[in-house]
């Protein structure tokens, strides 16, 4: 668990981060979102002390980060930046091995870990371990950047616009991969982005920042249903709101008793996808199947729409 308490940073007269407090639970993804210059990167970099706070403190599992030597602190926290920052003079394997080497792991353990991570990120070790970063595509470089950050099994991963340099198609795949890997490893992630879509896609919790201040901190559903008037409301996007709510809810949340004709929809898919299926096939209802394929009920357009409605 990370506790950020009254954290501030100013450069001379300029206040870049202004009295921000928030708590990040173990094993969750917290997304800090806001426009450029809001102070997101500075907030993130105060967690691993790349920026020294002017006031306030950061606790990791109850321990004040100021009490840990800074290099040691950073060995324990994964760090991924936009454009990945891979070492051009080291191979993929050499890049991934960076922190384990700093920690003095033996060669065999490092080699095993590198192979394990390459496989986790769907990069064939035989093909990629010996390549240099400039021989990789943007998406592959980005994956190596995340693999490198995870090499020493950090409990916390900081990501600063990690997908910012990717094409939209690759970006969405990279986001899904991050989710899968994060769920599997249980790593706590704090991710910075200016892309609201990305925030909704990835964030268990979303922190909205503007002009150095934390405006609102809550779950995606809270932000959608009760956005703070003004900046947050505009950022959340009023027109998109119902659809975003639908993507947050699962078919399982809206399943009703009864039967229906046609191809069943999966109980774990989201309501937005289910609705688009119903629109496409031109049917008001569809059967719902669980993971084993057994029919557990049905879903209807009306039932779905109720989930996208403004709460009263």
């Amino acid at each position: 668990m990370i506790e950020i308490e009254h954290l501030s940073k100013h450069y001379g007269e300029t206040i870049v981060v202004d009295d921000v407090s928030l708590r990040v639970d173990e094993g969750t993804i917290t997304v800090v979102v806001g426009t450029s210059g809001a102070g997101k990167s500075t907030l993130l970099r105060m967690i691993n002390r790349l920026v020294e706070p002017s006031a306030g403190r950061v606790l990791i599992d109850g321990q004040d980060t100021m009490s840990i030597p800074e290099d040691e602190l950073r060995h324990r926290i994964g760090y991924v930046i936009q454009g990945h920052g891979l070492f051009p003079h080291r191979t993929v394997a050499g890049n991934i091995a960076t922190v384990p080497r700093l920690l003095g792991w033996d060669a065999k353990r490092i080699a095993q870990r590198v192979e394990e991570l390459l496989l986790l990120f769907q990069l064939d070790p035989a093909e990629f371990a010996k390549k240099y970063p400039h021989e990789l595509s943007g998406g592959q470089q980005q994956r190596v950047g995340v693999a490198r950050a995870l090499a020493a099994r950090p409990a916390l991963l900081l990501m600063d616009e990690p997908f910012g340099a990717l094409d939209p198609l690759i970006r969405s795949k990279a986001q899904d991969d991050l989710l899968t890997i994060q769920r599997r490893l249980g790593t706590t992630v704090v991710l910075v982005t200016h892309d609201m879509e990305e925030a909704f896609h990835l964030g268990d919790m979303i922190a909205v920042m503007d002009e150095a201040r934390l405006l609102q901190y809550g779950t995606a559903a809270e932000l959608l249903t009760r956005p703070l008037p003004g900046f947050v409301e505009r950022l959340v996007g009023t027109a998109e709101r119902p659809f975003r709510l639908l993507s947050l809810a699962k078919v399982g949340d809206a399943v009703e008793p009864g039967s229906a004709e046609g191809e069943p929809v999966d109980v774990s898919s989201n309501l937005r996808d289910a609705l688009s299926r119903l629109i496409w096939i031109g049917s008001p209802t569809a059967p719902v199947a669980d993971a084993s394929g057994a029919i557990v009920g049905r879903i209807s357009v009306d039932g779905i729409l109720a989930h996208g409605r403004r709460p009263t």
Binding site: L50, E70, E72, G85, L102, A149, L158
Partner: peptide, 27 residues
């Protein structure tokens, strides 16, 4: 030496000496 690369090196906990010998001079 690209600032991003140095930032990454620092963020991974390389000391100034490790950054010089392991990153800056080779590049």
């Amino acid at each position: 030496v690209p600032p991003l690369v140095l930032d990454a090196a620092k963020g991974m906990g390389m000391s100034p000496r490790q950054r010089l010998l392991g990153v800056e001079l080779p590049l």
